[in-house]
C-alpha cells in the first residue's frame, strides 16, 4: 500500500484526486440545493415561529390579566354606583312621601276650613230665615189678635189655631 502513497504523491493518481474533489463539491452543491437550504430554512422558520408563539402567548396572557383587572374594577365601580342609585332613590322616595303627606294634610285642613265656613254660612242663613219668619209670624199674630175680640173660648181656639199653624209652618 505504501507504493500507492508514493505513486499518488508522484502524480499517478492526480486524476483520482481531482475526481474526488470535484464529485464531492458537486455532491455538496446538490445537497445544498435539494436539502440543506430548504431544511435549514424550515428549521429557522420553526424556531422563529416557536419564539413568536411564546411571545404572543405571553402578550395575550398579559392582555387577559389586564382585561380581568379592568372588569373587576368596573364591577366594583358599578356595584358602588348601584348602591348610590338605590340610596338616592330611597332618599327621593322619602322626600316625595313627606311632600305628599304634607300636601294631603294641607288639603284636608283646607277642606275642613271650607266645610266649617259653609256650616257657619248656613247657620247664619237659617238664623236670618228664622228671624224673618218670627217677625212675619209676630206680625200675623198681632194682626190676628187685633182682628178678633177675644173671649176665653175664642182665645183658646185662637191659641190652638196658632199652634196648629205654627206646627204646619214648621213642618
Amino acid at each position: 500500500m505504501l507504493s500507492h502513497l508514493i505513486i499518488g504523491a508522484s502524480g499517478l493518481y492526480l486524476g483520482d484526486m481531482l475526481f474526488i474533489a470535484i464529485s464531492f463539491i458537486i455532491l455538496m452543491a446538490l445537497i445544498a440545493k435539494v436539502a440543506w437550504n430548504p431544511v435549514t430554512k424550515m428549521m429557522g422558520d420553526r424556531a422563529d415561529k416557536i419564539a413568536n408563539d411564546i411571545d404572543s402567548a405571553k402578550k395575550s396572557r398579559q392582555e387577559a390579566t389586564d382585561l380581568a383587572d379592568q372588569r373587576r374594577e368596573a364591577l366594583s365601580h358599578s356595584r358602588s354606583e348601584a348602591s348610590d342609585i338605590v340610596a338616592e332613590a330611597k332618599q327621593s322616595g322619602e322626600k316625595q312621601r313627606t311632600t305628599i303627606v304634607a300636601d294631603a294634610q294641607n288639603e284636608a285642613t283646607q277642606y275642613k276650613q271650607n266645610a266649617r265656613k259653609d256650616i257657619e254660612q248656613e247657620r247664619q242663613d237659617a238664623l236670618k230665615n228664622v228671624q224673618s219668619d218670627v217677625a212675619d209670624i209676630s206680625v200675623q199674630i198681632a194682626s190676628k189678635i187685633i182682628k178678633k175680640q177675644l173671649d176665653p173660648e175664642g182665645q183658646q181656639a185662637l191659641i190652638n189655631s196658632y199652634i196648629e199653624g205654627l206646627g204646619k209652618h214648621e213642618s
Binding site: 502524480g11 499517478l12 493518481y13 492526480l14 486524476g15 483520482d16 475526481f19 474526488i20 464529485s23 464531492f24 458537486i26 455532491l27 446538490l30 445537497i31 435539494v34 436539502a35 430548504p38 431544511v39
Partner: peptide
Amino acid sequence: TFNIANDISILLTCIIVFLFVFLLS
C-alpha cells in the same frame, strides 16, 4: 491517471448519498 475502481465507487457513494438526502427532503 484515473483509477476506474475508485472513481466508480466514489460516484456510487455520491449517488447513494444524494438519493438518500433527496428522498428524505
